[in-house]
Amino acid sequence: MKVLVVGGAGYIGSHCVRQLQAAGHEPVVLDNLVFGHRSAVAEDVPFYDCDLGDPEVVGKILKEEQIELVMHFAAFAYVGESVTEPRKYYENNFVATLRLLETMIDNGVKKFVFSSTCATYGEPESLPIVETLRQSPINPYGQTKLDVENCLKAFAHAYGLSFAAFRYFNAAGAAEDGTIGEDHNPETHLIPLVIDAATGKRENIKIFGTDYDTPDGTCLRDYVHVDDLSRAHIAVFDKLAEPGAGYFYNLGTGTPNSVREIINAVEAVTGLKVPVVEDERRAGDPPALFADSSKAQQELGWEIKYKDVKDIIATAWRWHQSHPKGYED
């Protein structure tokens, strides 16, 4: 299938491009490189440096490349920034995505795979989190993702759009061969921050709260390998053959790890000591968040390859060793 990957030069998008190629599909990448990296995409993959909300340019790409399906990974995703700069998040995450969907419909492209988030649930009523739980985001980032989910349901009903929305938990790791990986500026994800502390790139890693009602007092989160995420997105393709079909799936391992466990695992994988500073709790940090992904496993045949967080960290460590300065483009 000819697939347009919007945000395909970003962290998850670039890994999905690799997995698309491995599965025999033909990816085409659209990315404005605000956060993406051109060198994360192989030279043999068609690449367009433009905005997803430009209907004229996007429409031309859809026609000329004969696109059959669009995958969306182009959201801004800094929760704190979404609180202080909500205009930026509504404009990019919702308005630009609406323009993209309109352009798709106008050009007869009616298959869409959307990168959503567990942030749509807010503070969950129960654990593990299942897809039927009430969605009540507590920040603009989560709200914009939920707004797109609701838009997709309306477009499916009115225009016959077929879609799948995947609610991620904590994407982590890097490509097995270490050639592409995670390079954010600023970096907010725990595993790369702990690795940076281990290698001396940062002074220490802070543990925000040590008195939670968890086995070791630190927050529990669900870490899922980026390639496992990518394979789920491709596994849903066959289900999108039916016009107007809509699917929602959680993607996580279902086995959470605490902050201390992540620090210990990084030390075990790297052989380096991680300097730690204990700090007060952060506002809005739930004690535990983890997924029930049985729906994706049962309906899509999705298999989690990286079940042990040490294996996930080992791939991240391989990337950090081979790219100590990240991407340099």
Rank of each mutant, 00 (worst) to 15 (best):
D285I: 07
S293H: 02
R281C: 00
G271R: 04
V259S: 04
R260V: 07
W302A: 13
I304T: 14
D279I: 02
D292I: 01
D311S: 12
D292T: 07
V266G: 09
E278H: 08
S258G: 04
R318K: 15
A268F: 00
T270V: 08
Q298A: 15
G271A: 04
G271Q: 00
V276K: 08
D308I: 08
K325Q: 15
R281F: 05
T315G: 07
I262F: 03
K325H: 14
A283L: 05
E278Y: 06
P324I: 12
P286A: 02
E278S: 06
A291N: 09
K307Q: 14
S322K: 15
A291Q: 10
A316N: 08
K295P: 12
P287E: 11
A291M: 14
A296I: 07
E261I: 02
Q321C: 13
K325G: 08
A283K: 09
G301F: 09
R282S: 04
E267I: 03
W317M: 05
V274D: 10
P286K: 00
E278D: 14
I304K: 02
D311P: 07
H323I: 09
E278T: 04
I262Q: 04
I313R: 07
I304L: 12
R260K: 09
L272I: 06
A291Y: 07
W317T: 06
A296V: 10
V266R: 06
E267W: 00
R281K: 15
S293A: 15
W317E: 10
W319F: 15
A265C: 10
L300A: 05
I262Y: 07
R318A: 10
I263A: 09
P275N: 12
K325L: 13
D279C: 12
G284P: 00
P324H: 10
A265N: 03
A265L: 05
V269W: 03
P275A: 10
H320F: 13
